[in-house]
Amino acid sequence: MAEPMGFFTDTTVCIGCKACEIACKQWNQLPATNGGQNTISGVSYDNTRQLDGIHWRHVRFIEQFDTRDPNRTDGRWLLMSDVCKHCVQAGCLEVCPTGAIVRTEFDTVVIQSDVCNGCRACISACPFGVIGINPVSHTAQKCTLCYDRLKVGMEPACSKACPTDSIQFGTISQLRDRAQKRVGDLHQQGQTEAYLYGADDKIVGGLNSFFLLMDKPEVYGLPKDPQLPSRNLAPSGIGSGIGAVLVGLLGLLNFRKRRMDRFAAQGHRES
């Protein structure tokens, strides 16, 4: 296996230009809209709104302004280019019933579009809401970390296009070192709220695309404590097993050989 590869996204230098979104769409030939007109979100300057089958990168705009203050003096923009986290323990991969979702030699998570049959289990399994159905292929799709480009030694389209190096591509160990250093620098400059999300193994075994954030994860649309869907496997298996035993016992008690006609008069007077 090659060394694990991934993204380090430093949200502090993102300028919201969306070059990564466009580069991703171009390289992966993703349609601009879902067959229809462009719509605007109406609540934000961000009209992409979410990651899904035709948006494998999404630059999230977080507009922290007090709308009751007419001068909007106190406020800030948080910008973050979101993407599949290429989880070390991936919920999507766990539940995929066709084997379409695989872990590659780069330790990334890829959906093979020619295998996927569009059952959508992965969509409800991903703790980050990354996957969607692509309306052209009718299969589940998401970022592949440009598997085809990695294969030939190129870097992914988004990080290549990013003009501020907010998105950095590299080996995980290299990126983690760089990210630690960046957090240290920011803390020294007084930006003590800076921290890394997913750069260790605490979040689903580690995120191979991890982030430097300046506010709580929820503010960026990221769950504080993402979990794997398999956490419910045993609890719900046990529940169903208890159900089967109880219903089996009830069947045994109610259906075992009875003396005929004893209860017949009690109300079933039909026929």
């Binding site: 289990a121 409800s124 991903c126 703790p127 869907p229 496997l233 719900s236 169903s240 219903v247």
Partner: peptide, 16 residues
């Protein structure tokens, strides 16, 4: 019984 119960497991083994 498995057919009757696994559907509930299917929904619970998600993040929804």
């Amino acid at each position: 019984l498995a057919l009757a119960g696994y559907t509930g497991m299917l929904l619970s083994v998600t993040n929804r």
